[in-house]
Computed example of a mutant assay.
Amino acid sequence: MPTASAAPAALRDPADEAEPAPRRRARSRLAGVSRRLALPLGSLLLFLAVWQSVAAAGTWSETLVPPPAKVWGAFVDVSTTHDGVRGYNGTYLVEHLGISLRRIAFGAGLGIVIGVAFGLVMGTVGWVRSLFEPWITFLRTLPPLAYFSLLIVWLGIDEEPKITLLAVAAFPPVAVATAAAVAAAPRHLQEAARALGGSRRDVVRDVVLPSALPEIFTGVRLAVGVAYSSLVAAELVNGLPGIGGMVKDAANYNNTPVVLVGIAAIGISGLLIDGLLLRLERAVVPWRGHT
């Protein structure tokens, strides 16, 4: 007669018992990924349903709230050649986006490099921080449009004012985050490194920088976000080709579907870049969250 403990074993699937452990782990990971994707996909479908309902209700005209199908048609139009017209204003959507990403890479990249270097100096030299931090805070609070016109007067209407605007927008978040992280580096570890004969450069390289890297990466992500939010402002003047220029030009003609396509392209590319930065952070700073 079977015992009570043997009954559950008899109910187990023999296929599960025979399944190799790596395959079970892979199946478990796949189930976890599916669960993580279910909520975002569900929220997207709900958003599209609400959007379609609002557009179909007719409360607002299609100029203000175009239906999703019309926006999809605009996406196809700006991504292909139709009726002899190549994309939008002779440039495909992916080309507009690529030109804007290149501007962000140059502008935000320059601002990030300068911001990290300046933040290191501010965090290690007290009088430099006291002297420059109010100016950086002042710059950080300025909206890009406040000084873009001045950049145009100084640098013209070509690429220079756009790159400079993105660099100036990206600089303060990185500089402030780096300075704060460097100043908060553990004092006892710095003193231990000096006691072991480390020079000032050694202490900064081997103790301060590793301690500050997580916050520096946070500042970099913030800087890229600020640069993206400044993109349309940077391309207000002579921005075509460029995704921000496309949005501005379409808005001038009340072409709301193209405006929405451009906004979606900026947002999705921003999400992808932020995801890449997160992966880079996990690779460079694997100890974040574990110490």
Rank of each mutant, 00 (worst) to 15 (best):
I136W: 11
W135P: 00
T141Q: 07
L189A: 10
A184Y: 11
Q190L: 13
A146W: 15
L165W: 05
L150A: 13
A167Y: 09
E191A: 07
F148I: 10
E133L: 14
A179L: 00
T137R: 13
F148E: 03
L165T: 00
I157P: 00
P134N: 10
L142D: 06
V182M: 02
D158I: 04
L151D: 04
I157T: 12
A169P: 01
W135L: 15
V128S: 09
A193W: 09
A193F: 10
L131T: 13
R129A: 12
R140M: 15
P161G: 02
Y147T: 02
V182R: 02
R129G: 10
F171W: 07
A181L: 06
A192Y: 00
L139T: 08
P144C: 05
V168L: 15
T137I: 15
V128L: 14
L151V: 07
V182C: 05
E160S: 13
L145Q: 10
A179C: 09
T178Y: 09
G156N: 05
T137L: 15
V128P: 03
A181W: 09
T137F: 14
T178P: 06
L139F: 08
V174A: 07
A179K: 04
V128R: 04
T164F: 11
A177Q: 03
R129N: 15
P172N: 10
A179G: 08
W154E: 03
R129H: 14
V153K: 00
A175M: 12
P172H: 12
S130T: 09
F138A: 15
T137N: 15
L150Q: 05
L155R: 02
V176G: 01
V153D: 04
T141C: 14
P143T: 12
R140S: 15
F171H: 03
L189S: 10
A192Q: 06
P172R: 03
A185V: 01
A170F: 08
T164A: 12
A175K: 02
A184H: 13
V168F: 11
D158Y: 09
W154T: 07
